[in-house]
Design a protein around this nucleic acid. Structure first.
Lengths: 199, 199
DNA sequence: GTCTATATACTGATAGAC
DNA sequence: GTCTATCAGTATATAGAC
């Protein structure tokens, strides 16, 4: 009767395997057999629990989109923190999340590109109405909010996206790459302050 | 005997179709039938001219990698321009190239992630030995060159990568998005100067 | 619920006519 | 060189035994 690891339901085993394989290879390159193998389960069980590859993919995709966009929006829509604190918080927490999920950005961007309908405009409107947008407009109405937020996200997300390229450089392999990214947690807020305080 | 459009060889028609379809959908999601259809040609001709999907892909991929990395390296390895001019040149010319080839960045990054062996370390060493690296070290030896170049590339490339997401926002559709990106040609050098002149 | 076996459809590649 | 027809291999999905 005691709880063991083995008590994870078959359904959840399949979902966990699907998270790994889909985010790693994308929808097209993933075979249902890859997921079954990753889960250590029979192929037929995927269809028993989820009906089709598409349906399973949609469940995982929505989870991953929420992970990717939801966290940013929650950090930027916080009434209790200042603009500077938000930049620091995004740099810290979002980088940590991406280091734990390095396949996430390219998965999300690729799948939205393949099928833009997957991305609901509800997400972008949550960003546009966020506290962050209001705050930046109060402090620096001359700064284009879109440029500012896109610079922040670029400097955080792009290096993770480009890791497979960057890590080919000897000085940037594995742990060195991770150390390099963690350095950016401190540096990104500094760079943004010099932009904010210029002119 | 006169030259017409129709004089484009069948081989080149297939390559041009392959460029479009492979960069749009990636290797796995592309069917050889998609390429034949895009070229307006019979499927069997692909194998007649290029033996296999893999071989055709390798040809296109190497072209595209050279386009993506080669241009950056040529701009950064120019003895005749200053550091500031290089930032301006990269912001201008590279953004123009990416606007003309919006599928290029995610294609290159996805395919290298799927198969890191595709990316030769010859490319990274050309970057590390570039004039740009030497120049930045002379002017600001306290600045980490990797952070600097990655910030530059992030701010240029990421917005293009994220276009399918950004353009879901009403204020960022089509021509407005392009205008927004072109604004960045002027702004990116300004932002980098405030970072370079700080501290 | 889970397995084996198999149906059905798709994809890359080739044989052979023209 | 280019086409039609088709093969062989693989992928998703299901039927049916346990």
């Amino acid at each position: 009767m005691e709880k063991k690891e083995k008590d994870i339901s078959t359904e959840e085993k399949i979902k966990e395997a699907a998270r790994i394989v889909f985010t790693k290879k994308g929808f097209s390159a993933t075979r249902t057999r890859d997921i079954a193998e990753e889960a250590g389960l029979n192929l037929a069980l995927l269809n028993y629990y989820f009906r089709s590859k598409e349906k399973l993919f949609h469940i995982i995709m929505e989870e991953k989109f929420e992970q990717f966009f939801g966290m940013i929006i929650r950090l930027l829509d916080d009434e209790s923190t200042s603009l500077e604190k938000k930049v620091t918080a995004v740099a810290n927490d979002y980088i940590d999340m991406l280091l734990a999920n390095p396949d996430l950005p390219i998965f999300v961007l690729s799948e939205i590109k393949n099928n833009p309908a997957l991305f609901s405009d509800r997400i972008s409107s949550r960003l546009l109405k966020s506290v962050f947008f209001r705050q930046l407009n109060e402090v620096r109405p001359d700064i284009n909010v879109f440029h500012f937020i896109l610079n922040l996200l670029s400097m955080i997300i792009f290096p993770i996206l480009a890791q497979p390229v960057i890590s080919q450089i000897d000085a940037m392999k594995d742990k060195k790459f991770k150390k390099f990214i963690i350095e950016r947690k401190k540096l990104i807020p500094i760079w943004f302050n010099s932009i904010l305080n210029t002119k």
